[in-house]
């Protein structure tokens, strides 16, 4: 199980990637899983226990997301 964050644009994905890297929070950038409908083709994948921290970071950094979703690690 992982949390997948999806975005309206690549810029927003890059912004969250940047914030997470700065904060030293482990994450991956991956193609958006088919099961999720999202505007931008890149998603951020996280361990579920990081979700609250990342939500707060995203909000504080003004990142626009199209949601946090829980799926199997392969995005199914």
């Amino acid at each position: 199980m992982h949390v997948f964050v999806v975005f309206p644009s690549t810029h927003e994905a890059m912004r969250l990637d940047h914030l997470l890297t700065q904060a030293g929070i482990e994450h991956d950038l991956i193609p958006v899983p088919r099961a999720l409908s999202a505007s931008c083709g890149v998603a951020v994948r996280l361990k579920p226990e990081l979700e609250e921290r990342v939500r707060a970071l995203a909000e504080g950094g003004g990142v626009r997301t199209e949601g946090f979703h829980r799926l199997g690690s392969e995005g199914r």
């Binding site: 690549t10 890059m14 950038l29 083709g41 890149v42």
Partner: peptide, 16 residues
């Protein structure tokens, strides 16, 4: 931003 592979993401980082 057109793909999720490594090179595409690196390019998106450059633009960002």
């Amino acid at each position: 931003g057109r793909s999720g592979h490594r090179l595409s993401i690196e390019a998106a980082r450059v633009v960002f």
